[in-house]
Amino acid sequence: MIPPKFDYHRPTSVQEAVQLLQSSPEAKVLAGGHSLIPLMKLRLAAPAAVIDIGRIPDLRGIQALDSGELRIGACTTHHEIATSQAVQRAAPLLAEAAAQIGDRQVRYRGTIGGNLAHADPASDLPAVVVALNATLQAEGPQGSRSIPAAEFFVDLMTTTLQPGEILTQIRVPALGQGTGSCYLKFEHPASGYALCGAAAIVSLNPDGSCAQARLCFNGVSARPVDAAAVAQALVGSDLSDGAIDAAVEDHLRVPDPVGDIHASASYRQELAKALGKRALKAARDRARG
């Protein structure tokens, strides 16, 4: 609970932050601090320096483009996202998930960029940005680049961010008409992290059949799981309870399921089935309005 000594930098621009990160490779980037600080207090992380990007104005705020796309600064808090009308309109799945993160205190300080860059597989946002086909914008010494969410998460606490790069923005395309979504979480009673989190999106054809579907999971593997086969099986179906149950039962495969003292791998797979069905049904009901 008592961290070792470290240097503290508070850059005022992204450019300055990138330079600082380049000049001190042992540094860690601090956004809301809700993942990094606990590790430092337990002396599990002991960076020589902390670069606090939390007060860079360019990294805050939510912008909705005319196209409907959301541009969310990496240091926007979970609370801001959960309560943003623009997010609730364009990507209600993201608002719904953000509202389930941690507790009130965590949501007021924790940020979307910090959450995604930390890449904790039990966190709530990774599967959601994958399901939403979001794009993550990173800034580094070589300039700016875009990373599709599906390619961002590599492994436990590991992303495709390069040393020296900072995650700056999350771009989320708007969900279309006739689309419903749902995020459901089965949380661990101690941490509130997801033993399993299911993000579902369902789009309807004018006749009520399934035009498109997405089903992604947090917590069950070292990285977000995209259950594309389940989604594929649903396209064209009538989205009845039976159709959803069958698609999940027949096509859900969790690659490399994780098991630990909190939940075994086999139980997590069962949770994924149960939550996947429920999230899809709720998304369908919302799509039907």
């Binding site: 337990l42 661990h188 009673p189 101690a190 941490s191 992290y193 003292i261 909190h262």
Partner: peptide, 29 residues
């Protein structure tokens, strides 16, 4: 009844050594 339980591993390490791992009941439960 429902949440708490200290767990030691084979070597005698307390694996439920933090509030992330050891669940005390919260008001909303």
């Amino acid at each position: 009844a429902l949440y708490e339980g200290a767990v030691y591993d084979e070597s005698g390490n307390l694996v439920t050594g933090t509030m992330l791992d050891y669940a005390v009941p919260k008001a909303h439960f």
